[in-house]
Simulated scan of single mutants.
Amino acid sequence: MKQTPSTPLELNALHLPSEPSWWPLAWGWWALAAGLLCVVVFSLLMVRWKRKRIAPQKTALRLLNPHLSNTPSSAIELLRQAALCYFPRDQIAHLTGKEWYNFLDEQLGRPLFVPNETVWQQALYQKQPVADAKALVADCYVWVQDALPPKKRRPSSVGKH
């Protein structure tokens, strides 16, 4: 039998591989960054769309401010302009009188203009100021505040079997 030397073997030192670097990023990080970018862009577009959608309503509310001295005729004209911003012209432009008030009440969901139809007609077509002018202007303010922008409504089944 051969004798083994009792001295340790001379081995080379261990060479460990270098630590992995962050760059270039793995595909999962790129996918996460792309997803976050899409979410941020989508959120910004939604905020911009919402602001653009409610801009006519905000303008109409500012012009119908109860502290300003609006006449019923100027208020109803402003109401028509605000409605034209949200509804198709061919649906709004031809409406007058009772049809116009019915449209306003239909969008609001409660009767506010039809019960006061005669008062509205007097306020719009008489030279003398009507006693309830502030109440009529306040009704216009309520309509702009509650009916605009229009909400999607399910068709009512009243009277249908």
Rank of each mutant, 00 (worst) to 15 (best):
V47G: 14
L9K: 01
R80E: 04
V158A: 14
Q121P: 03
Q81C: 11
A33F: 11
A33C: 10
K152D: 15
V47S: 15
G159P: 09
Q81A: 08
Q145Y: 13
L25E: 07
Q91I: 11
C38M: 04
A13E: 11
K127S: 13
D139T: 00
R89S: 14
L79S: 14
T4G: 04
L124V: 00
P149T: 09
V114N: 01
S157P: 03
A133G: 07
C38F: 02
F87M: 14
L108G: 11
Y125F: 15
L11E: 15
W49P: 09
A138F: 09
A13P: 14
T96P: 03
N102I: 05
P24C: 08
P20A: 05
K2I: 12
A55C: 01
L78W: 00
K2Y: 12
R53T: 13
A60V: 02
L37E: 06
V114E: 02
S156F: 09
G109Y: 01
Y125I: 10
V137W: 08
L45F: 06
K50Y: 11
P20Q: 04
T118W: 00
K50D: 06
P129M: 03
L68F: 09
L63N: 07
C140A: 04
A133K: 10
V41W: 08
S69G: 04
A34M: 06
A93G: 02
T4D: 10
L104P: 00
P56F: 04
L63H: 04
A55N: 05
K160I: 13
S69I: 03
Q91W: 09
K134C: 08
P155H: 08
W120T: 10
A75V: 05
C140T: 01
T59P: 04
I76K: 05
E10C: 07
I92A: 02
V144Q: 07
P129E: 11
L36G: 10
K50G: 07
W120H: 11
G35H: 02
A31Y: 06
L36R: 01
H67I: 10
V158F: 15
S43Y: 13
S73Y: 02
N102W: 02
V114Y: 01
L84I: 09
V144W: 02
Q91P: 03
E99S: 08
A26E: 15
A75E: 03
L64I: 03
Q121Y: 10
N65E: 03
N102D: 05
R110W: 02
F42H: 13
Q121E: 11
P129Y: 06
V41E: 02
R62A: 15
W100P: 02
H94M: 10
V158M: 13
K50P: 00
K98S: 06
D139C: 05
H15T: 14
K98V: 01
L36V: 04
M1A: 15
R53Y: 12
A135I: 03
A34F: 07
A33K: 14
V144T: 08
T4L: 10
T4V: 08
A83F: 00
L84P: 13
P8D: 05
V39L: 15
P24G: 07
L64Y: 01
V41M: 05
A13V: 12
L64M: 00
E77L: 05
P5K: 06
W143H: 07
G28N: 09
L112K: 01
L78C: 08
L44P: 09
V40P: 12
